[in-house]
Design a protein around this nucleic acid. Sequence first.
DNA 1: TATAAATATGAATATTTATTCATATGTATA
DNA 2: TATACATATGAATAAATATTCATATTTATA
Lengths: 100, 100
Amino acid sequence: MHIKYYPFFGNLANPLKIRIVGELKQNEMSVLDLADKLNEEQSKISHALKSLKNCSIVEMRQSGKKRIYSLNKETILPILDILDKHESKFCKKCKAKFRL
Amino acid sequence: MHIKYYPFFGNLANPLKIRIVGELKQNEMSVLDLADKLNEEQSKISHALKSLKNCSIVEMRQSGKKRIYSLNKETILPILDILDKHESKFCKKCKAKFRL
DNA sequence: TATAAATATGAATATTTATTCATATGTATA
DNA sequence: TATACATATGAATAAATATTCATATTTATA
């Protein structure tokens, strides 16, 4: 059994990081764009992006003096989709209500 | 965007809990069976199972004086499958090597 | 090439999460 | 119905993770 999935899931287990995923699901954007959108400090975003990138949940490209981050949709969208189904099927009365 | 996926992922982000998932992927079993198999203390297993159950990652049925836990394969197997693909495609040189 | 803009980094602290251990609760059966 | 077996629980502690803030790097341009 693969047991070291957990660094990957650890990223998705974090409120800020999952919010970043949510934003990048809509549009790729720079670090400061994310900081603005999410109303969080720049260094916080940078730290979060670093670990997301370590697990290939996001990708980065340089564009001028900005770094544009984008979501690895191939992996992440199907996972979120499964979670939506899971929620509606198994979490009717779920304690940890999954909604924002 | 659903932001409260993270209690769910938090479970998969934990080494013990993912080992439990690994065992239950093979066979359903009781708390003490798991404790034996994984060589961990019973209460540790119970605590872990409780939060896995809260997110419907595992199910439980009573059988005599034992409680038999089983994996929610419908949700979990596809997720693990996506992770396997992700690993082989994106994590060739990944820091957090995903293998046991 | 000095400067500003954009991002990253490190280390201290704070917060969250897990572990431990003693004990309580539930379940069957002698 | 007393006892053993199986599991759960609570609270203290330990460990892992995130946040903060000051500062270092990186990148483009005046």
